[in-house]
Write a protein that binds this DNA or RNA. Structure first.
Lengths: 132, 132
DNA sequence: CAGCATCCGGGTCGATACTG
DNA sequence: CAGTATCGACCCGGATGCTG
């Protein structure tokens, strides 16, 4: 909390003091290996299945399907089938996501900015272990 | 980031358009089953090993050790041993965490606020599947 | 095109027992 | 008190092959 705003402390207290903090559930939902990337990609606009598959790089059909199903089931993503031939399915984000996008991006920004420090810390830690 | 600043859109674009978005790495670090809760608990102040073990509820010694090691290795947590008998070890957060606390709390706030909608969506989805 | 079914290897996690 | 060591169950996730 670099710029500790006035109301920030209350927020912090609220989020920190409740013991039924549902953070684990969110992380279970978007903390999977691919869910976050699917969300990010869909945040750029509606996408078709194969579009996502190509955009995400490294994801398998299976995992993409599972991730999409989970997100759809949880109401974060909609799935619309157009009765065309060949079949066409479009995925899009729901309003629920609009409110999580900012925190997610803040997290992503932190990741970019903290990455060097983390890498350095790990190297230092590992070297310390080796000479011990 | 409750107060959406003017540059917010740029942040969004920056976080969304880069393809080397390191979100997965962050999630790998704090997305584990226990790491987030450890961070939250340590956010309340320095804690000893057994204190954490009792506070977190359901965590095993093994998982607590592994989580703490990973966080320590990544520079998010410090571990200080006091040469006492009986042994005494204290864990605390580092400055790196101060900057991730806000996003984490925003996420937690979203979780609390979105939980009902998510639960409802899941029930609706599951019922739809059953009658199909 | 957009999936589902199946198999299978590896890593995660919990339980338990032991140590400085 | 603050861990480590070992074992085993489980689940995630990749590879492959088959459908409407």
């Amino acid at each position: 909390m670099s710029q500790r705003n006035i109301a920030g402390t209350d927020q912090l207290t609220a989020a920190t003091e409740t013991d039924d903090c549902p953070l684990p559930e969110v992380l279970a939902l978007i903390g999977g290996k691919w869910s976050a990337q699917v969300l990010v990609e869909l945040g750029r606009g509606p996408r078709r299945f194969t579009q996502l598959e190509r955009a995400i790089e490294g994801i398998s059909r299976r995992m993409l399907t599972l991730s999409l199903r989970d997100l759809e089931r949880s109401g974060l993503v909609t799935r619309t089938v157009y009765p065309d031939a060949p079949p066409r399915v479009e995925y899009a984000t729901t309003a629920l996501i609009d409110e999580i996008r900012e925190p997610l991006e803040a997290l992503s920004a932190w990741a970019r900015h903290a990455a060097p420090a983390i890498t350095a810390a790990r190297q230092a830690f590992d070297e310390g272990r080796r000479e011990a």
